[in-house]
Amino acid sequence: MRRNGKPAGSLAVLFDLDGTLIDSVADLTAAVNTVLVAHGAQPLDVAAVRGMVGNGVAKLVQRAFQARGRPLDAAGRATATDAMMAAYRDGLTAQTALMAGAPTVLAQLRAMGAELAVVTNKPQDATEAILNHFGLSKAFGAVVGSRPGLASKPAPDMLFAALDAIGASAETAVMVGDSAVDAEAARAAGLPCVLVRGGYARQALETLGADAIVDDLSGLADAIAGLRMAAATG
């Protein structure tokens, strides 16, 4: 059987973005600090912001202001989030870099016949701009970022939207990420999950229930192949 022209059982790999394919924490730090300073608060260092990334921009803003003892109400958080995104768009890729091995592993997976998608809590327009900047857009059959009406990770909705867009099935898909948000989203969607070290997780990856953990992206293709073999023989 085929679905949308693809053989049944074709591999689909859904990637988180920040901390998985790109290291964006320096630019996120600069943007959130612009807003903190505008509110008379002291800026945060990169290490502090690294532990705040993963649940979307609004949550990052909330955590940053809480860290400075200035909790925001809903209206204040919305205003500060808009201000942060304006600052972030001004320097979207100023200090952002690809994670080591990202282009190589994408090529490896495509050579394996995999359909690829990005599933991220970063806003859709910023996600597309970053992928375009690094020349990665053509590697992905779908890019699903934060948008109105679509629940963000750890809800499974984004993952299902990506699978639908590339005509893939959850039964043959894998989620790749760096944090609890990705592991929880994969579990909610019924997908196996591979976590990559070196991202923005706030907990030890071994505690998050991933099906596999790799030290960096160079080990990802083998890890996914191992999961598929185990599923086929199990």
Rank of each mutant, 00 (worst) to 15 (best):
residue 3 R to Y: 06
residue 5 G to H: 10
residue 7 P to T: 05
residue 19 G to L: 03
residue 19 G to H: 03
residue 20 T to R: 06
residue 20 T to L: 10
residue 24 S to G: 10
residue 29 T to F: 05
residue 32 V to M: 02
residue 33 N to C: 07
residue 38 A to D: 14
residue 43 P to S: 13
residue 48 A to F: 04
residue 54 G to Q: 00
residue 54 G to P: 00
residue 61 V to S: 00
residue 64 A to M: 02
residue 65 F to M: 07
residue 68 R to W: 06
residue 69 G to H: 05
residue 69 G to E: 04
residue 75 A to Y: 08
residue 78 A to Q: 14
residue 79 T to Q: 14
residue 83 A to K: 02
residue 83 A to Q: 12
residue 86 A to T: 15
residue 89 R to L: 12
residue 89 R to K: 14
residue 90 D to L: 15
residue 91 G to H: 07
residue 93 T to C: 15
residue 100 A to P: 10
residue 101 G to A: 13
residue 110 R to W: 07
residue 115 E to Q: 12
residue 123 P to A: 11
residue 125 D to I: 02
residue 127 T to S: 14
residue 135 G to D: 08
residue 136 L to E: 03
residue 141 G to L: 12
residue 144 V to P: 02
residue 149 G to F: 07
residue 155 A to H: 13
residue 155 A to L: 12
residue 157 D to K: 01
residue 160 F to P: 01
residue 160 F to E: 08
residue 161 A to T: 06
residue 163 L to K: 00
residue 171 E to A: 15
residue 171 E to H: 13
residue 173 A to I: 03
residue 173 A to T: 05
residue 185 A to S: 10
residue 185 A to F: 03
residue 187 R to K: 13
residue 194 V to S: 01
residue 197 R to Y: 08
residue 198 G to S: 11
residue 198 G to W: 04
residue 200 Y to D: 07
residue 201 A to D: 03
residue 201 A to F: 04
residue 203 Q to G: 09
residue 212 A to E: 12
residue 219 G to K: 03
residue 219 G to H: 07
residue 219 G to S: 06
residue 220 L to T: 01
residue 223 A to N: 09
residue 224 I to N: 00
residue 225 A to H: 06
residue 225 A to T: 09
residue 230 A to K: 15
residue 231 A to N: 13
residue 234 G to K: 07
